[in-house]
Amino acid sequence: MQILIDTDSRKRRKAPGLFLLPGALLAPTLIIVFVVLLYPAACTIFFSLTDKTMADTTYSFIGLKNYSNLFSDPKFWMAFQHSIIFTLVAGSLNILLGFGTALLVNRAIPFRGLFRSLLLIPWVMPHIVTGLMFRWLYNDFYGYLNYLLIHAGLIEKPILFLVDRAFVWLAVILPTVWYEYPFVMLMFLAALQSISPDLYRAAKVDGANAFQQFLHITLPCLKQAFLLNGLLQIIFMFKSFNLVWILTQGGPGDRTELLSTLAYRHVFEGFSTGYGSAVATVIFLVLFAVSIVYLASPAIRSEEP
């Protein structure tokens, strides 16, 4: 009986301390997540339900009015369409190019380490550097892209890549892929390296040629990597903003307007914070839904160990 009371009191004394250390260790992360992620996200969603502007400190709750305005706004639907096309084209190119280069640098070629490092350089560069670099590249006076095309006899006068409606999408997607594909390559390279060499040895003994090994060993073993890269590319490309803004700001006119540039324009240029927040919330909801569908899909779940 005596012992029982003793352990009880010890338990009671220990209880508050039980969460102190884990709590203290988790606190910095939780605070950062709250300050830079949860609070701004919550604000955005909240403002999307108000008529807040940048000019006025007072605002009132207007329910889903912003959304109903949004859904009847042809500019919104056009930006939505642009975002989807941009995501599909740039994302697919990133995956194709990233996968291809990963296959190349996974082979036992001379200076493999050097190639791997060099190929990563575009991804390491800040967006602003990449954006400005490509603006110079496209320049009609000084840009060597026009210079090369004219000297090769392909064109007679310079193309205004960032102004010409026929070329501006190409001019935006090119640097996006240039910047993004090394990351995809890195992911595929990691996945390729995790395939046991014995599987290829076994397949060789079983009589598979190089193409059959690729088809029956490499591709199935990379299924997870393809699914993951697919999801990440949808997320990264759909909310892509920096390069487009640096290169065209959504122009010429609204030719390259994406949902992200539309949201920015409304919040910081049109000063209609509420309306812009609604656009941003739509981006969030779309990506959230895609992620849920993706992660719940049988293809992902069936491969879990």
């Binding site: 046991s196 014995d198 599987l199 040895r201 076994a202 397949a203 003994v205 079983d206 029956h216 060993i217 199935p220 073993c221 299924k223």
Partner: peptide
């Protein structure tokens, strides 16, 4: 035909 140390069965 060959049997490997770690079996080398095709995981998929």
């Amino acid at each position: 035909a060959m049997v490997f140390q770690n079996h080398a069965l095709y995981p998929h």
